[in-house]
Structures are given as C-alpha cells and as structure tokens.
Design a protein around this nucleic acid. Structure first.
Lengths: 125, 125
DNA sequence: GTCGTAGTACGACATTTGTCGTAGTACGAT
DNA sequence: ATCGTACTACGACAAATGTCGTACTACGAC
C-alpha cells in the first residue's frame, strides 16, 4: 500500500525565517486564517483559494515544509491542520498576533482588493 | 540644500505581508533585533551585517518601505530606529514575539555560526 | 578648496518564487 | 474494471529577490 506519508519538519527543525516567509503570502495567510478559525482539520478543497490547483498544492507544501501546518491523507482528501501547539511553543504569541492582524485587516478592506475572486466565509467569526 | 528626505509608509499603508516578508530574512532580522535591543537609534554602520554595503542598503530599504524601521539622515550617518509604536498598534505583540523568538534562536546556535564576518572576495572564479 | 567617511544608485547576475497547464496517481464508489 | 474526485509532479515561464562591484553624492573635518 502506498502509505502516502508526508514529510514534516520536527519541532527543532522549524525555523523562524521559514515560518515568517510562509506567512508572508496572501494565499498562504488565508489558509492559515481559515485553519485558525476552524480549529480543526480542513481539506484543501474546502479552502477556496484564488489560484489554480497546482499553485494551491505549492502553497500547502510551503506551509507544511515550514512547519506551519500538518497534512495527512484521508481517503482522497488531504486534511490540513495548524501546528498551533508546536508554533506556540517555539514562538509564543506569534501565530495569534499574525492571525488576528490578518483577520482585522481582512475585515477592514474587504472589497478593496481588486481582481481575485474570493468567496467562502470570511465573515463567520 | 540637499533635503534628503526618505519616504516612509504611513501607518495605514503598512501591510502585514510586507512586514512579514521584511522580517523573513536573516540580515534584516538581525537589524530588527539590534534595534530592539538598543531601543533607540543606530547608524547603518553600527550594525555589522555579513553582507556588502550595497546589499545592506537594500535590506534597510526593504525594512523602511515595509514600515518596520524609520530612517533619518544625521550628518553623514543614516540613523535607524524601529517603528515599534506603529507596529504595536497595527499588529499587537507581533514584533515582540518575533524579536524574542529570534533572540532565543540566536542564543541557542551561537557558536555554530561564527560571527558576522565580511571581507570575503569571490571564490573560485 | 581637498580628503575621508557614510551611504546611494545603477547595472548585472544567479536564485528563488509564484503562477499555470498538462499529464498523472491514489482512492472511493459503482 | 471503470469512472469521478482530489490532489501531485513536472516543466515552463515571468517576476521578484538577494547579492555584488563600481561609480557616485552628501557631509564634516582639515
């Protein structure tokens, strides 16, 4: 059986710069905010990014390799969850401050961003 | 009179992604940590980065344009300071968490990376 | 004025990054 | 086995990024 195991960095391998870089992209930040909101697992297909699927895969990989999210296969789906405990242990309050700042900003300039179509529930909080 | 005024983003113009991106570089993170430690102004030449002067200028500009630092000319020197109040107002606890995480990390692997040395000509050719 | 120091501007370059489409694999359902 | 869904791998590409050296400007000191 193809176990389909995904490589994740251990806690010691998580690097601050990589985490910051992973968070410094709009699409990835959206994923992180979504996961922070749901506080559980979400399939890639649940999070409606304004990019193609290949690009989405790329962003999920960046997040996983930076240690920001954990990914497991479940059936045909790939479930994502925040590595909140790990990140909090390494960088206390970092994730919270980024997520709440992003949420605040999203609330403020909803509609200002032209172009990309986003749908999905940014308001359910 | 050479006015030599430097452009800074206003508080409203500071974007979270830009700040995160600015912080996601080792040289720039070092600058930020230095400024956080000194809690005042520091000339570019006071912070010994392991890059050339032109590259240093580039990094300082990235930090300034992201809204992370403020730069003013004073004589021949260019003084840098953290925009801590502005950043704290926009992204509460973000700067603190990043700086303390970086400080912790620096403390941990001090010695593996022998200090900032420059003066390296290009190798090989 | 000249000189040295601090930093800049510019062009060049290699690398990384974000983006996509196409072709493919893994799985569940039929 | 066949089909559809979910996601991946790969190659391609443009744009951004980090790096440098050289030539330059701004300022203070002499």
């Amino acid at each position: 059986m193809s176990v389909r195991v995904l490589e994740h960095p251990s806690v010691e391998e998580i690097r601050l710069e990589a985490v910051l870089h992973a968070l410094a992209d709009p699409a990835r930040l959206e994923v992180v905010c979504f996961l922070a909101r749901t506080e559980g697992e979400a399939a890639c297909s649940e999070i409606d990014l304004a990019v193609s699927k290949s690009t989405g895969t790329h962003h999920y990989r960046v997040l996983r390799e930076a240690g920001v999210i954990r990914q497991v296969y479940r059936g045909t789906a790939k479930m994502n969850s925040l590595r909140k405990a790990d990140l909090d242990a390494l960088f206390p309050r970092l994730l919270d401050s980024v997520v709440s700042a992003a949420a605040k900003r999203l609330r403020r300039d909803q509609g200002t961003t032209s172009g990309a179509r986003r749908s999905r529930a940014h308001q359910g909080e």
